[in-house]
Design a binder for these strands. Structure first.
Lengths: 350, 350
DNA sequence: CTTGGCACTCAGCCAGACGGAGTGCCAATC
DNA sequence: GATTGGCACTCCGTCTGGCTGAGTGCCAAG
């Protein structure tokens, strides 16, 4: 809003800003001119640094908590840092090993277990909160559909998707169906739907219903009816979170009220899902710093996200949530690699 | 350990203890003699009260945080209070209505949804944390078993139990089975197992395997093999928790480290499950006060539990977790009634 | 442009003082 | 013998003022 110039910062200013943020991320306390003079490698006196800091503050990259403290990055400062000052560290081999072991090919692992593992690993390695959204079925191909008779007017529908996803739904039906009727219905629907994504299936259902008139027997019509009920249920997005309590250790979040609001948002899920959905759209890793997320509860947090793929399709997002003062250089590659590993762990089972 | 006498407290002492604890539960601050003199209705001077308090302290029902504060109940004091001093309040009708609405008969609700609702209601009404264990399949009768062919060497097993419980498992198999083979296998197993509890099913499997020799064809043998794999998987107990963050508002828990330990215990689940398991054994409502639970993280908490039933069988537990200073008179009936409502909500769908 | 010097600001910490709440004990009273 | 008023004492919480250290902004000299 009050942006005045594109601010192509001079190299000098960039170095100073970078050392300041580096230091602040490491130590968590406002950084003064003397410190920067020592650590920047610039061979300038504190006084000169002070001048530069004053400029940076005027341009909105820094601020001081009070008159005689050092300086602290603003959201704007972090943004610049992340976008162009950051030197992404390669992942430490110990942590890489940890990740790979966590995803070691285990054919018996359920989808849920794999997802849980992913978020636990994220939070464990970063010591912050790890989030993984469940894969959106919308994007997954259907492997199998089956109807089973329960008592009288209840039918159990079983949907099997790519990527370890199995889904059950109990339906009420008008008249009882026998096992063999349901068997036929399942067979019929399988020939129609297998391999398609949910949206395609829906389209196919509409098609079938249109063509229904002449060439279909009553059973097939019933089958399509059932299918239309099953696939009509809108998918509810959801996610798994781990390591919430890690966030309690950061002093910048330790205000009880804020923390509580944050935790509540985690369980309410709605706002969180909105945010993660944005990350789903984008291509690669994405970072939301402080207020950028647009959600009050996240004002003091940053969110580092990366989408993951099954069968080449983006089906979900993982994220690390922590204080704005987080070690972005470290977190970014962690999220990135975990996304890849998770993707292939889910693929593997098709 | 250092119990000296059965301590049949005099009526006088009981009244004083009760008013003190009542007051402390309401206000959360150490209670002094003057307050009790005013509130007990005993028409005694503070000085007399002081004498009585001194006795109660010596007998271990009270303690003072420091020399010139009022007094506070010990675990022992709460115990006595809960066991014999407590006047259980009937549930306010507003809250009763809330509960009943929450469980309004909804045939389409899944087991998971019903359980979630229960724990949310518990936490919502008590403003503390609500916990509900998932129903133990061990106790539930099997309604249906089915095998479905997936690709090549994978078979999907679907188990349907009483009480909305559906369970999927993907199995590896030695040789591919055709759909009709699996159909036959399912039929066969259904005739053997339906209506039985898991343990009975396991027994039946062992039986079948013994009788296998002569009168069974290869397919049936395979069927039993499959079943033995499916039912061999030990059930992992689990629970759902809601309103964790409510606990952050209690000053007695607000020490960050403790709170964090507590939250971690909630997600680690192991110790919690142990405790809840004890409650499963007992008959009715059960209360663990402070250290009575035997788990360090719960030292400053009390847990009020009640088991719930499906088909007359106890299959799970619900609990409210809060600070030792909680309104037991209010919480006990809430947990109790919720248990009943949850039980019938789950029953209803068989 | 850079630098040393300087006055100034401000948070954090310590020490001391004070008031309030509540106690334990004792001697007087019913 | 239980009950009570009186009293000295303890201890917490809060407020105060003073001090220190860190860091600043500005200015004038290099």
């Amino acid at each position: 809003m009050s942006t005045t110039t594109p601010h192509a910062l001079g190299e000098r200013a960039q170095i100073i800003l970078k050392t300041l943020i580096d230091r602040f991320i490491r130590e968590g306390e406002p950084v003064g001119s003397r410190t920067i003079a020592r650590e920047s490698g610039l061979d300038l006196s504190p006084a000169s640094i002070r001048n530069a800091l004053l400029d940076l503050e005027e341009q909105g990259f820094l601020q001081s908590p009070h008159a005689s403290a050092g300086r602290v990055p603003t959201v704007r400062g972090y943004r610049l840092f992340v976008d162009s000052l950051l030197t992404v560290q390669p992942l430490e081999s110990a942590q890489l090993a940890l990740l790979e072991q966590g995803f070691v090919a285990d054919e018996t692992a359920t989808r849920q277990q794999v997802i849980d593992t992913a978020s636990r690993l994220l939070s464990g390695i970063t010591r912050m909160a790890g989030v993984v959204t469940l894969p959106r079925r919308e994007q997954l191909g259907l492997r199998h559909i089956e109807f089973l008779p329960l008592s009288g007017h209840q039918v159990l529908a079983v949907l099997v998707f790519e990527g370890q996803e199995v889904q059950n739904r109990i339906l009420k039906v008008e008249r009882p169906f026998s096992a063999s009727e349901l068997q036929q219905a399942s067979n019929y629907l399988n020939t129609l739907f297998v391999g398609k994504g949910i949206q395609q299936v829906r389209d196919a259902i509409v098609d079938e219903m249109r063509r229904t008139r002449a060439d279909m027997d009553e059973l097939m019509r019933a089958a399509v009816e059932l299918a239309s009920v099953v696939f009509d249920v809108p998918e509810e997005a959801d996610y798994v979170i781990a390591g919430q309590s890690n966030l309690m250790d950061f002093k910048e979040l330790s205000h009880v009220e804020k923390l509580r609001a944050l935790f509540d948002a985690f369980t309410a899920k709605r706002e969180m899902l909105h945010l993660l959905d944005q990350a789903l759209q984008g291509e690669g890793a994405q970072i939301f710093i402080g207020e950028e997320s647009g959600y009050r509860v996240l004002d003091d947090c940053s969110v580092v996200t990366a989408p993951y793929r099954v069968n080449g399709q983006v089906v979900g997002v993982l994220a690390v949530i922590g204080p704005t003062r987080m070690a972005y250089q470290r977190v970014i590659p962690i999220v990135d690699i975990t996304a890849r590993l998770l993707g292939s762990a889910l693929n593997l089972s098709n």
